[in-house]
Design a protein around this nucleic acid. Structure first.
Lengths: 205, 205
DNA sequence: CTAAAAATGGACCCGCAAGTCCAGAAAATG
DNA sequence: CATTTTCTGGACTTGCGGGTCCATTTTTAG
């Protein structure tokens, strides 16, 4: 079934995925044809189908996975150590920066939008990405609660969900308007709401 | 240029738009062909091009406009009179309800994602929808500020932007996971944050 | 009632892009 | 080495779907 890949083969396969990702970022999923990918990655039609027997759909899914991986790694190390107010602000800046750079191209969003209907696998990619992202946030909130910087009464997971929603929405608005203001507002107000929570029952003194 | 429409013609045109919207909701933009629309609306190819000389793109744009209109009207009358705490909660419920009903089909999102690259018009539709939506929220926040229920120091427009982002993100997560929790969390925490704002500079006695 | 304009039906064209196929080169294997 | 497997090139097929065209019917207008 799955033919063993030689080093060369694995390299080619990877080259195709990355080239496809670039092409999709540059021109959009719907506008990208296998021939475009073929041209950019200096491969032949038979290679594409050799490494992705499921055709375009399988290739797009691989690209989606690739892009999903980048989303979180681009937020590291900040996302992994949300253990101080400072760390939260650093993370915020990393997120804003990442999406400022990315601009209006959202490969993953359009990819999944494109694939969701067809493949259950694509939906899983998004689902896992979101879950992992949210977990990181929840862990961060809990850490702050342990340090007494956020009220222990707050539902960490629910707060993380809301914050994540704000980010997603900010990004999606960025896609359609080109403006970062919503993303920034969502992050700023979201984090402020978290950190403004009285740590302990107002231990003033 | 634009041929005058008879009553019959206008009706047909409208039928096509609504049928196309249904088809797209049911099967997704990319999967929907002119022939599907033709079949569902009991029209002929020539009619499609008669009423939408610009072809599929023009038709999709019309559908996008149609769907955009529904987004806000579905939130009325609540969205237009956010002048009490009660009203805010009613609006919240209306939003959640609307998207619960819509489920994982987001015609507008996929439509604009599909069109944005091509037409500047599609981007304008989204932009205007978001702007109008946010304005309603801002007006509501200001109203609450006037009534002394929200601190006058709060930046109403920025808060509205954050809330809107949360909704957008909640919806987009709903699309990819089928779960309403994020939308609810974003709305609940967002509104709570607004209404929890001390009305006046803590006039405690 | 009649001429013009609009509405409709549906056959047809055409290009594009996904997918197939086979033959030949390169690499692994023993 | 030999031979088996993997990798590569590229011509070819094919179907689908957007778009065109024209003939016919229906409606409007004077």
């Amino acid at each position: 079934m799955t033919p063993r890949l030689t080093a060369k083969g694995a390299a080619t396969r990877q080259r195709v995925i990355e080239g496809a990702a670039q092409e999709i970022r540059a021109r959009g999923v719907t506008e990208t044809t296998l021939d475009d990918i073929r041209a950019r990655t200096a491969t032949s039609k038979s290679q594409l189908f050799h490494y992705f027997p499921g055709g375009k759909e399988e290739l797009l899914l691989a690209v989606a996975r690739h892009e999903a991986g980048r989303v979180l790694s681009d937020q590291q190390p900040h996302l992994g150590e949300l253990t101080s107010r400072r760390a939260w602000y650093n993370w915020r800046d990393a997120v804003v920066d990442r999406y400022r750079r990315q601009g209006q191209q959202c490969p993953l969003g359009t990819l999944t939008a494109q694939l969701t209907r067809a493949t259950p696998g694509a939906q899983a990619v998004t689902r896992e990405l979101l879950a992992s992202w949210q977990t990181h946030l929840t862990v961060g909130i809990r850490a702050m609660q342990d340090r007494g910087e956020i009220s222990p009464g707050l539902d960490a997971d629910r707060a993380a969900a809301a914050l994540l929603a704000g980010i997603q929405g900010g990004v999606s608005i960025l896609m359609s308007t080109g403006s970062l203001t919503h993303l920034e507002a969502a992050l700023d107000l979201g984090i402020d709401a978290l950190l403004a929570t009285p740590a302990r029952p107002t231990p003033t003194g």
